[in-house]
């Protein structure tokens, strides 16, 4: 669905991404992980079509991103940003409706879709609230619902769980995994390696703009590799209930 081929991005002599290649087929949840400044959000921005790479190609459904018009692209991919902006006191349900405002979808399905998306992330009781007065976590869930109702085959999520409590982290990523299982292509930038391990089926570990490793959580989350990339000693344990690894930091870090 979304293919990244030998992508590089250079801005003012700074190489932000170098020779990144990965494929995100429909039906998969890909997590982009890596330390701060590794290029995760930059890569997601390229996938969203915010800017063109200086080398290589980003293809969506077989065509380069640059060939799509704005409206056409909005029908194919939705993007959940790291921080949500809202400039006027819209109601929460109106913010969620914005996801569908310019989509060519049957209008009679709009309300059902909006209600379902709000119920999924448990913001239905906030429907008539002024969205400017929401907490960070409530804002993130509202944005998630808005992105959800855009109903696109590709979903790009930039740190979707950063502001959420434990329950909503789990719920949101389970929802994302469900969509992936239903055939959507989901890509998420994640900081929490354990959430990534539990919900993603493909991990891409970025280090200084390059892909250090990619594969299943068991392939990528190796103690030595993480220690090298994150410059922090870790232990990797099997999850007591799920079939995935768990990463915990250990104390003998660098001074």
């Amino acid at each position: 669905m979304l293919e990244i081929e030998d992508v590089s991005l250079r801005i003012d002599d700074r190489e932000l991404l170098r020779d990144v290649s990965l494929a995100c087929p429909g039906g998969s949840l890909t997590a982009l992980i890596g330390p701060n400044g590794a290029g995760k959000s930059t890569l997601l921005g390229l996938m969203a079509g915010d800017r063109a790479p200086t080398g290589g190609a980003v293809r969506l459904a077989g065509r380069p991103l640059a060939e799509y018009g704005v409206r056409e692209l909005a029908g194919l991919r939705a993007v959940m940003p790291q921080d949500s902006v809202l400039r006027f006191a819209y109601r929460v349900d109106d913010v969620v409706r914005m996801g569908r405002a310019l989509r060519d979808l049957p209008p009679q399905e709009d309300e059902a879709s909006v209600h379902m998306a709000m119920a999924e992330v448990e913001i239905a009781p906030l429907a008539a609230r002024n969205a400017l007065t929401l907490s960070g976590g409530e804002q993130a869930r509202t944005t998630f619902a808005r992105v959800r109702v855009q109903s696109t085959p590709v979903l790009l999520l930039d740190e979707p769980t950063a502001a959420l409590d434990l329950r909503h982290q789990e719920r949101l990523l389970s929802l994302a995994a469900d969509w992936a299982a239903a055939g959507h292509c989901v890509v998420a930038v994640m900081h929490d390696l354990n959430l990534a391990a539990a919900h993603a089926d493909h991990l891409v570990l970025l280090d200084q703009g390059r892909v250090a490793a990619q594969g299943t959580p068991w392939d990528v989350l190796l103690a030595g590799q993480l220690r090298r990339v994150y410059r922090q000693p870790v232990c990797v344990l099997p999850h007591p209930e799920r079939d995935c690894p768990v990463v915990v930091t250990t104390g003998d870090g660098p001074p």
Binding site: D50, V70, L73, A74, P81, R87, F88, A101, R103, Q150
Partner: peptide
């Protein structure tokens, strides 16, 4: 009102 970048993402 969602900001320029997100407006673009939603089709503006």
């Amino acid at each position: 009102a969602l900001g320029e970048r997100q407006a673009q993402h939603t089709g503006v």
